[in-house]
Simulated assay, not measured.
Amino acid sequence: MSKQMFDVAKLVEHFGGRSNLHARLLESGEKITIRAIDQWLYRGRIPSAVLATMLRLSVLSGEPLDLAKFTKRADQQQRPDSREPIDSLLD
């Protein structure tokens, strides 16, 4: 059985992209930067405390996340080309 991981890009997109997610996290009290979100996208990982906040935000908005819809096999992980600015790949 292959290792499963969250599809971070799909999670960020669910919240309307990195700018909208950033704004919602700030409003909820998370001290987060756009650069941090860029790093999650690059690494394919979200800190567990922030993921918990995202889950809470989804419940409060009336659209609870079904995390099973945001998983993929680890071998499907694709990192952006390091020569290409991450901004061109997002939003």
Rank of each mutant, 00 (worst) to 15 (best):
Q76C: 12
K3H: 11
Q78W: 02
L67N: 05
F70H: 09
M5R: 13
S2K: 05
S61H: 10
S82N: 04
E27M: 07
E30H: 01
H14L: 05
E27W: 02
R24P: 03
Q78S: 03
T71Q: 12
A9V: 03
N20E: 10
S82H: 05
D66H: 04
N20S: 15
S2P: 10
T33H: 03
V12N: 09
M5A: 05
Q76W: 04
Q39W: 14
V8M: 06
K69Q: 12
H22C: 07
A68C: 13
D38M: 00
G62V: 07
L51C: 03
L65D: 00
K10L: 11
E30C: 08
A49E: 11
H22T: 13
K69S: 14
V12L: 04
K69I: 13
E84A: 14
Q4M: 15
M1W: 09
E84Y: 09
L60H: 02
T53F: 02
W40Y: 09
P85D: 02
S2M: 10
E63N: 15
S82Y: 04
I32S: 08
L26R: 12
F15S: 14
L89V: 01
E27T: 05
V12G: 09
A9K: 14
E30K: 11
Q76T: 02
S88K: 15
S2V: 08
A23Q: 13
E84T: 14
A23I: 05
S48N: 03
Y42L: 08
G44M: 07
R83T: 11
L89S: 12
P80A: 08
H14K: 12
D91A: 12
S48T: 11
A49S: 12
A9M: 08
A74D: 05
D91Q: 13
D87R: 09
F15G: 06
D38I: 01
S82I: 08
L51K: 12
L67P: 01
E30G: 04
R18E: 12
T71R: 07
A74I: 09
L21D: 03
E13N: 11
E13P: 03
S88T: 13
D7Y: 09
S28C: 05
A52H: 05
A49R: 09
L60S: 10
A9Y: 14
A23R: 14
Q77T: 15
R56C: 07
A68M: 13
L67Y: 04
A9D: 09
E27Y: 01
R56A: 13
W40K: 05
R83L: 08
L11D: 07
W40G: 00
S82R: 14
W40P: 06
K72Y: 03
N20W: 01
Y42I: 15
I86T: 10
L55V: 14
Q77L: 15
V50T: 13
P47H: 12
Q4P: 10
H22Y: 10
R83N: 13
Q39A: 12
F70R: 00
D38P: 03
R73S: 09
I34D: 00
L11M: 08
R83F: 06
